[in-house]
């Protein structure tokens, strides 16, 4: 059982609320999404493990058991090419759960016309493997869901 933590502070709204069918239809995997508080934020690692991929707008942490969790900071934010994101860790780093990974500002993303909502997805998980999904207000580091 992996406990996945909220990478940012905000409101857990569920994947169905993500304005991108790739996430809302569960194509990437099960999980949830957080509508972040507007203001400068530090996105943290949702699990302990190795940073397998680190883009400014998204990262994947893989735990020792091989489970990978994707955190995507906003929708269509790949188009920003890193502008407005500051990396606080490096690809290949080992991080503890809750350790800072990227600094960013959801308000700036929104001002730029994009949704700052953050999908948090269990990669390669079947839908039923994710349970106890939090709903409502969460703080970074709070339990977000369990992954059997």
């Amino acid at each position: 059982m992996t406990t996945v933590l909220a990478p940012v502070e905000g409101v857990a709204v569920g994947l169905a609320a993500v304005p991108d069918p790739v996430f809302s239809a569960g194509m990437v995997g099960p999980g949830t999404a957080i509508d972040p508080v507007r203001g400068p934020l530090t996105a943290v690692a949702p699990i302990a493990g190795k940073i397998m991929k680190l883009h400014p707008h998204a990262y994947v942490i893989v735990g020792d058991d091989g489970k990978g969790v994707l955190v995507h900071l906003g929708i269509d934010t790949v188009q920003l090419k890193g502008k407005g994101f500051e990396l606080l860790a490096a690809e290949g780093d080992r991080v503890g759960a809750g350790q800072p990974v990227v600094a960013w500002d959801p308000a700036a993303i929104e001002t730029g016309g994009r949704s700052p909502v953050c999908p948090v997805v269990a990669l390669d998980a079947v839908a039923g493997a994710v349970t106890g999904v939090a709903l409502g207000t969460v703080h970074a580091g709070d339990e977000l869901f369990h992954w059997a």
Partner: peptide, 10 residues
């Protein structure tokens, strides 16, 4: 068939 491995392939 693994989204994780496809992402890792980069």
């Amino acid at each position: 068939k693994s989204i994780l491995q496809i992402m890792a392939l980069d």
